[in-house]
């Protein structure tokens, strides 16, 4: 085992070419994951609520679009964003932003299904009782249905965040210099210790994803605490 290849390139692994060039490496992976995660959560929540509330052709359109996004490999979707976004918005969009949007879109589609299912899983008596108490439908959703639904959906949120974090590695293929890209660069430059390089990278991702999972469990436990008293 040659650990020198990791320690000698450690700074490059962590931040890429920064500060001489754009930020990259592990820092970019974390930023991409966090940014896309936030965006996906907001999108998934809105999409899921709309899916649960709308009827008719709007429901069909929302459902079909999320199914379509889920049926295409994420990689292909990244290429799509790479190609289509500049045409639609008529401006040059940096690769990082493309990846961010693609990841948020896919994860949002997955989360939308989970949120809609969570809302559907709340017993119908809850809504009826809330309306009977004089709450408007909007208030019933906000104060009665959503809090219960989100508790059921929380594990899906955490899992989706982990998936998203892992999927940031795909940015490597469209040339965004995140952690996997940087690792591959080091591997191509040195060409002698691929096992060491990729073991290190795998270990870092493992720690990162396990950390997110652990945090998710802790937060869920915190949410349940007042109820179980």
């Amino acid at each position: 085992m040659n650990t020198g290849i990791v320690t000698n390139n450690l700074l490059f692994f962590l931040v890429g070419a920064w500060p001489a060039g754009p930020l990259g490496g592990l820092a970019l992976t974390v930023l991409l994951g966090a940014g896309a995660g936030l965006l996906a959560s907001a999108l998934g929540l809105a999409w899921g609520i709309a899916l649960a509330q709308c009827r008719g052709w709007l429901h069909l359109a929302l459902h079909a679009s999320s199914e379509l996004l889920r049926a295409i490999p994420v990689l292909l979707l990244m290429f799509w964003c790479y190609f289509l976004l500049p045409i639609v918005f008529k401006v040059d969009i940096p690769g990082v932003l493309t990846v961010l949007l693609a990841l948020a879109l896919v994860s949002g589609a997955y989360l939308a299904h989970a949120v809609a299912a969570g809302i559907a899983a709340v017993p119908s008596g809850q809504r009826e009782a809330a309306l009977a108490c004089g709450l408007t439908p909007r208030q019933a959703l906000r104060f009665v249905l959503l809090p219960q639904a989100l508790r059921t959906v929380w594990p899906s949120f955490v899992n989706q965040c982990v998936t998203l974090l892992k999927d940031t590695s795909l940015a490597y293929i469209v040339g965004v210099a995140e952690f996997t890209f940087v690792a591959n660069q080091v591997n191509n430059r040195e060409q002698v210790y691929p096992l060491e390089v990729f073991s290190f990278v795998a270990l870092v991702y493992l720690l990162l994803c396990s950390g997110v999972q652990w945090l998710g469990k802790r937060l869920l436990a915190g949410r349940h605490a007042p109820k179980s008293g």
Partner: peptide
């Protein structure tokens, strides 16, 4: 089990492709 689940597939593909020669 957790190790394989929590490492990106792409990293695992690269790991086996480049690294298996050393193993």
């Amino acid at each position: 089990h957790n190790g394989v689940r929590n490492v990106p597939l792409l990293v695992q593909v690269l790991f086996w492709y480049f690294g298996i020669g050393a193993l």
